[in-house]
Simulated assay, not measured.
Amino acid sequence: VLDDRVVQIEHLDGICELIINKPTINDNGIYVCTAKNKLGSQSTTHTVVVDTTHTSRRSSILSAIAMQEGGGGGESADAKAKGKKKKKEDEPEGGDGGYERRSRMPDPSPKQMLYFTVNLSNRYVAEGSKVKLQAVIGGPQPMIKWLKDDQNVTYGPNIRNMNRDSLAVLEFTNAKVEDSGTYSIVAQNESCKITTSAMLHVYETKVNTDVQPVFIRSLKETYHLNTNELILETAVRGQPTPAVQWFKDSIEIQSGGRFQIIEHQDGTCELIIDRPDNKDSGKYVVKAESRAGKMEISHYVLFEGQSHHIAENIHGVFHADKSLLRPKEVEKPVEKKPAPAPEPEWQA
C-alpha cells in the first residue's frame, strides 16, 4: 500500500496493477513501471490525464479564479486597462515580467491532452516472423513518430509505417536479428507530447532444443514361462535420442548369445535373457547419455530358476481352484440283499 488512495498489486500470472481511488487532476502525469532482475531491467510508461470537465463545480471554480485574477471587481474597466498598459510599459522586453506573463497562461484543457489507451508491448519472435508493434493514442490531432534506440526509424520494404489516425502501427514483414532494439512512439500536438516504449527481440531460429535424458518408466522384470525368457524393460526420453547401455554387476552387457537388447522408437528399452538361471540374478543398471546430459536407473533381479516358477504356477493354480481344497466324499458300497431261498416243489 503506497498510501490511502494508491494501491499496487502484483498477480501470480505477472499482471501488475496500480489502483488510484478517487483520482483528481493532481494525479495527472507520466507513470513509469520498471521490472528488474539480475539479467537486466525494462520499463514502460503511460501518460494519465484525469478529465474533470464532467463535474458541475468546475465552471464555478474557474469563474472564481478569474474574479480573483481580475482584482475582485473593485476597479473599473478603464482603470484595469490603464494599469495593464502602464505595467506593460514599465516592464523591459524579455525581462521577468514577460516570463511571469507566460507562466500565468492557463493550462491546456484535458480535452486537448494526448494519452495512450493502448501502450506498446514487448515482443519476442523468431527470425523471419511477421510482427507488428501497435499502440492507440487518445486525444485530438496527434502527430506520430517512430524511434529505434532514440533514432528515427528507417522505413523500407521490410519495415513499414502503417500509422492511421490515432492508431500507430510499425510492421516488420520479415523480422531479422538486427531489427532487435527498443522502439518508441512519440505522439505530439499543440498541447503536449507523450511517449511509450517497448523492446523487440528477434532470435535466431536455430535454438538449442536439447533435452536431458529422463527415464519415464521404472525398470521392471517379467518372466515368461512358456518361452523361458526373462525380460527387463524401461523407457527413456531425450533430445537428441540418448544412447543406452545395459550393465550387470558393473559389467556391460553386449547383445548376442542369450542376451538380446531392443530399443523401440517410443523410447522403450528391453533386455531379453533366454533360458535364464540363478546365475542371472544381480544388480542391473541402464545408462542413457547424450550431449544434453546423462541418467541411469537400476533394479535388482533375484531369479531362482525355471523349476521354481513352475512350482509357483502349480501352487497358484491349486489355490485358485477352491474345489481342490474340498475333500472328496468317499462313496459307500451298496449293500446287496441276499436272494430269497428257493422253495422246494413236490411232485407225485
Rank of each mutant, 00 (worst) to 15 (best):
Q260D: 12
Q134Y: 13
K193M: 07
D165K: 10
K82M: 06
R237F: 03
N228R: 09
K130L: 02
V317W: 14
T52L: 15
S281G: 03
K87V: 06
V207W: 00
T52H: 07
K22C: 01
G94Q: 09
G305F: 01
D210I: 02
G156R: 08
N152E: 14
N158V: 06
R160E: 12
Y99Q: 06
S121C: 06
H46N: 12
K111S: 03
S191M: 02
R5H: 00
H308P: 01
L133V: 09
Q239A: 12
G316H: 05
Q306M: 13
R160P: 06
P338C: 07
T209V: 08
D179R: 14
K82P: 00
W146H: 11
K248C: 00
N208H: 02
T195P: 01
D90R: 15
K332Q: 15
N163W: 15
D266P: 01
E17C: 10
E93D: 12
M162I: 02
E335S: 12
E329D: 14
G238V: 14
I137L: 13
I216L: 10
K279A: 14
F172M: 04
I216V: 12
N161K: 04
D4T: 13
H309T: 11
E252G: 02
F303T: 11
R258I: 03
E204N: 15
L219R: 04
Y300H: 06
T227G: 09
Y155N: 02
V153K: 00
C33T: 10
R326M: 11
E270R: 11
A198V: 12
N174D: 15
V125F: 11
H309P: 05
V50H: 14
N313P: 01
Y124H: 09
K294R: 07
M67D: 14
T205Y: 03
W146N: 04
T222E: 11
K145E: 11
L133S: 15
V317D: 15
R58P: 02
A81F: 01
K84Y: 07
G97E: 12
P276N: 05
Q68N: 05
G29C: 07
R164N: 12
H264E: 09
C192F: 11
H224L: 12
P110L: 09
N26H: 05
V50N: 13
L2W: 07
G71N: 09
K176F: 04
R57H: 09
F259T: 08
A341W: 00
P327D: 12
S129R: 00
G14N: 06
E229L: 07
Q112K: 14
V330N: 04
D13L: 01
L230N: 10
A348Y: 14
L120H: 06
A66M: 07
H46G: 06
I25S: 05
I297Q: 11
M105Q: 14
L18H: 05
T34G: 00
G282W: 00
G71W: 09
D277F: 00
Y99R: 04
D27R: 05
N278H: 02
T154S: 10
R102M: 12
S323F: 11
I144M: 07
L167I: 13
P213V: 13
T209K: 03
L232Q: 06
K85W: 08
S76K: 10
M143H: 13
E91R: 04
N158D: 11
K332F: 04
N189F: 00
L219C: 12
V7M: 13
I65Q: 10
